[in-house]
Design a protein around this nucleic acid. Structure first.
Lengths: 197, 197
DNA sequence: TACAAAAACTAATAAGTGTTAGTTTTGGCG
DNA sequence: CGCCAAAACTAACACTTATTAGTTTTTGTA
């Protein structure tokens, strides 16, 4: 009987996606059932199908929306004329900002993408690979210009993204650590470590 | 008809655990069925129950074995009299070593522990919290002795462990990056960034 | 107020889940 | 060879899964 009541500027599909995101993050995609999602909204499971096509579609929407946001920001960075180490710093700060603003979605996009069905899985992996190699290219140029210490750029990307993505485990674990402190400390360690001395 | 043939020095339960680990890592714990595990071994699912008690038990064994190894090494570090920054460096190197030697298990212990049933879940989270606060204590002492740059020690732990754990995504993605290169670059960036300059 | 569309409902499907019971096969040892 | 235990098997259980079909309720509008 209960109805899905969307907030302003958001469709009913958005409400489902949002509630599903919280559950996917907490329990993982395969362990979250359509009934779980329906219950969180206050509706019966089959009713969801008036608004979405499948459970997989929810995951797909989440992953690709986030991937698009990251790709978009990376393009901005590539086009501006900051020093290469600054580009990396901005990227780190953007990732942390995303982590704060879009916690559930970013987490899912990073941990649950492997459950995407084909052909989306292949597409997503491709975007992922592309994203990383473009960052590696920035690192390489920074090394060439002696702004950045000599490291293997692919390893550098791995370490930077690992450090950033890993903080997903933070949010709830220690509320005391606020985002700004995290951001400054992260920049201090990573940029400090990357800088050519 | 096929039998579970264990390698030398390993029980049949070990064979199951090992095959299950590979699947848990690839597909995730909830998405891996007992039938999947059985098929990987070449046996029918109910046969597994001659050697294990439940699917959950497999996960429990994996997670707690790894947790024990990390805790054991941390104790060694705490007891020796290296400078605090060296302790951290050794810890980073140990994590990477574990990543190479015990890839599947470490990955699972880090990503699938949330599916542990109680009371193991509470126990595991406790060990996890404990591990992190002991590392934070090392960082704090290093900061006090001015070996380590001034950061919030809890944030420091978060960043270090994030960077290390994130490399789990590496192994297969870029075989070209070898472990030693990764280790040296990781130490260069993280220890370089942590050092008080 | 009446009508149409949107969106909820119930009932049901086929497939998959972990696990148990009971039975047959296998392998090692006297 | 004959026995016994270990370990495989088949059949079945009680649930849960995503999803569809068909029906009823709700909602917005003329």
């Amino acid at each position: 009987m209960a109805k899905i009541i969307p907030a302003k500027n958001s469709s009913k599909k958005d409400v489902i996606t949002q509630k599903a995101s919280a559950l996917f993050r907490k329990k993982g995609f395969p362990a979250t059932s359509m009934r779980d999602i329906a219950e969180a909204i206050g509706v019966e499971a089959p009713s969801l199908y008036n608004h979405i096509h499948s459970k997989n579609e929810i995951l797909k929407d989440i992953c690709f929306r986030i991937a698009g946001l990251f790709t978009g920001y990376l393009r901005e960075i590539e086009l501006n004329s900051d020093p290469y180490l600054s580009k990396i710093e901005h990227l780190i700060r953007f990732h942390i900002l995303m982590m704060v603003d879009e916690y559930e979605s970013v987490y899912i996009s990073d941990h649950e993408w492997k459950h995407l069905p084909e052909p989306y899985l292949a597409d997503f992996k491709n975007q992922r690979r592309n994203y990383r190699s473009r960052i590696a290219a920035i690192l390489q140029k920074g090394i060439d210009k002696k702004e950045i210490t000599i490291i293997n750029p692919n390893v550098g990307v791995l370490i930077i993204l690992s450090a950033i993505n890993g903080i997903e485990g933070w949010q709830k674990s220690s509320k005391k650590i606020d985002a700004k402190l995290l951001e400054e400390n992260m920049v201090k360690i990573l940029i400090g470590g990357l800088k050519n001395k």
